[in-house]
């Protein structure tokens, strides 16, 4: 049976949900978790609940905040030859860190798989390419450990997780030389979940007509606990920042509900959101391509429909 390490990010007691998705999928394997920097006791308990045998907490000078080199050096020493596979959620941090770490082992890495399985000790994953226009089977070869990142919201949480022992263990780690270091963090405008992690997304397109008009989407998002996104047309017109862009040159998302408002559905946008579980489209053009991907389409003006939608949803949620 393959020895697997899952790299997790903990913010105090909170562990990113994608970690639990990965642990759930790895049920039946011998799975440890590694966290760099401080973590809370409840985080360890949650990780155990989803199957972690051991939770290794790597601590040392300059490891209290992220740096690509510091985290990679600490994890490299810890991993050594102890694991066959290293998994991580495809978060901003892990997408930066894992390629460097895999390079330290001259090892292969499969990025952002949306599903995977093991045949004996051999991993096989499915991953979207061309922003989801096609899917392919991905396998890894060459030196171990092999590295895999998993797209958030793709696997889903297990309904009946198998618990692990969750033995917590502090590991003294060294960050080594850090040449690229964070001097400061500037908070984003939004405290909401990032688009790639959001469970519900309300997105606006060219028909929004202005940045101010996004307020109508923000109000709906507020009621739903959703994150607001935008199409490339809206971003290129200056209505929204690139951080909000969904599509091939923006973010690829798979929330459980995607509400597309005034988005026609260019091929590069559809590629970035088509794996959403349920899609609602609101557009005045009944022939807009977005309707071909929508589970529920409303032919109408977003500026009249979205406020009614907000009222209806707040009624049933209250």
């Amino acid at each position: 049976m393959a020895k697997v390490l899952v790299f997790a990010e903990a913010n105090g007691d909170t562990v990113k949900s994608v970690t639990f998705e990965i642990l759930g999928k790895l049920a039946g394997h011998d799975v440890d978790v590694a966290v760099v920097g401080d973590m809370g006791g409840n985080a360890v308990a949650d990780l155990a609940k989803f199957g972690a045998a051991n939770v290794h907490n790597l601590k040392g000078d300059n490891l209290d905040k992220y740096s690509p080199e510091g985290y990679a050096n600490a994890l490299k020493d810890f991993i050594g030859s102890n694991y066959d596979y290293v998994f991580a959620g495809a978060t901003s941090l892990a997408k930066d860190l894992m390629p460097r770490l895999s390079g330290m082992f001259d090892a292969g890495m499969a990025s952002e798989v949306t599903n995977f399985a093991f045949d004996g000790d051999n991993f096989a994953g499915t991953r979207p390419l061309f922003a989801g226009k096609v899917l392919a089977k991905v396998e890894l070869q060459g030196p171990k450990p092999h590295f895999v990142t998993v797209r958030p919201n793709a696997l889903g949480l297990p309904e009946n997780p198998t618990a692990g022992a969750g033995a917590s263990n502090d590991v003294a780690a060294s960050a080594g030389e850090i040449r690229a270091a964070i001097k400061e963090i500037i908070k984003g405008a939004s405290e909401k979940l990032d688009l790639t992690e959001a469970n519900i997304i309300v997105s606006g397109g060219r028909a929004m007509k202005s940045a101010e008009n996004f307020k109508v989407l923000e109000e709906l998002a507020e009621v739903l606990g959703a994150t607001v996104g935008a199409s490339r047309a809206a971003v290129d017109s200056g209505y929204a920042p690139h951080a909000m862009q969904v599509g091939q040159t923006g973010k690829t998302v798979s929330p459980s509900l995607y509400i597309a408002c005034g988005i026609s559905g260019a091929i590069q946008h559809l590629a970035g959101m088509r794996t959403s579980k349920v899609i609602v489209a609101i557009n005045t053009d009944p022939d807009a391509p977005i309707f071909t991907k929508a589970d529920y389409g409303i032919v109408g003006d977003l500026f009249t429909i979205v406020p009614i939608l907000k009222e209806e949803i707040s009624k049933i949620l209250s």
């Binding site: 992220y66 978060t91 901003s92 690229a180 270091a181 964070i182 001097k183 400061e184 963090i185 500037i186 908070k187 984003g188 405008a189 939004s190 405290e191 909401k192 979940l193 990032d194 790639t196 992690e197 920042p241 951080a243 909000m244």
Partner: peptide, 8 residues
């Protein structure tokens, strides 16, 4: 995530 910026 969330449009936050890390300054390096």
């Amino acid at each position: 995530e969330g449009g936050a910026l890390e300054v390096y």
